[in-house]
Design a protein around this nucleic acid. Structure first.
Lengths: 135, 135
DNA sequence: ACATGCTGGTTCCTATTGGTAACTGTTGCA
DNA sequence: TGCAACAGTTACCAATAGGAACCAGCATGT
């Protein structure tokens, strides 16, 4: 029996441990939005050279300009992506993973591998569940 | 250079690979909501015996009845949690992780460990970023 | 001078999510 | 007769996510 979970000490009551909202949920929520994983994946594929805004857009054809901007801002805010502005003519902006961002790739891959291996089963469960709801 | 990412084949264009929304985002979005990780963590702490609805509520004091119900339904829908209904008096409902749910704990822990180790730095980055925005 | 395109960003709108509060019914207890 | 515990459901409200459309600076082509 661990003495803490999600970085918080476990408080026991008559039923067992007591948990409150915690850090992992906050990070998973950020990564779980529609585009963040794709932006990270794309930047991870270009480890040696930074990528321009327009190259990221072309790499994720369905993303809008606004959502790419917001996704990059949020990643920059968390220190996972670095933004480099070059005031040339025309101005150039490049993005790349920070050391922190790169340090995340291994653990994240371990989990996304599980998702990929289980995804077909999860989709089947969802369909079966939704079908049973109607009947 | 991998030939696929997030379970999708990579399509190259002049800039590099092209990605579209994918399964990992869908699962991360589910796990990334406010309560799901807590419910899974709590169920993982009780591996041998199922937990009742009211025990889960006591284990997560801040969650409302409605949000616990919704969270459990979504986990049941994905086949990660099993719901057992006993039509006794009063009715009893018990929840436990399925085999699929338990198979997720290892990979998920690898990632949440990274989050726990990095969380302080991420919070510091967020504060610094938000402070810089205003000035 | 003028159109066009690339750059990053903004405004406005809607759909989804998370939240509180109140209601359903049942049984056991006083 | 009234109340609490059980496991929800329903109604309604606020915040967020995501999308289309638009904006402004600067370049090139003619």
């Amino acid at each position: 029996m661990p003495r803490e979970i999600n970085g918080r000490p476990i408080i026991e009551n008559s039923d067992g441990p007591v948990l409150t909202p915690c850090a992992p949920g906050s990070v998973l929520a950020r990564l779980g939005d529609k585009w963040t994983i794709l932006v990270i994946s794309l930047l991870a594929l270009s480890p040696d050279r930074p990528m321009r805004f327009s190259a990221l857009r072309r790499g994720i054809p369905d993303i809008s300009q606004r959502m790419l901007t917001l996704t990059l801002r949020n990643l920059e805010r968390d220190g996972l992506v670095a933004r480099h502005y070059y005031p040339e003519l025309p101005p150039r902006v490049e993005y790349e993973l920070t050391d922190r961002g790169r340090s995340m790739l291994g653990p994240l891959a371990g989990f996304t591998d599980w998702i990929r291996g289980t995804w077909q089963d999860i989709e089947a469960s969802r369909k079966a569940f939704d079908a049973g709801e109607k009947g």
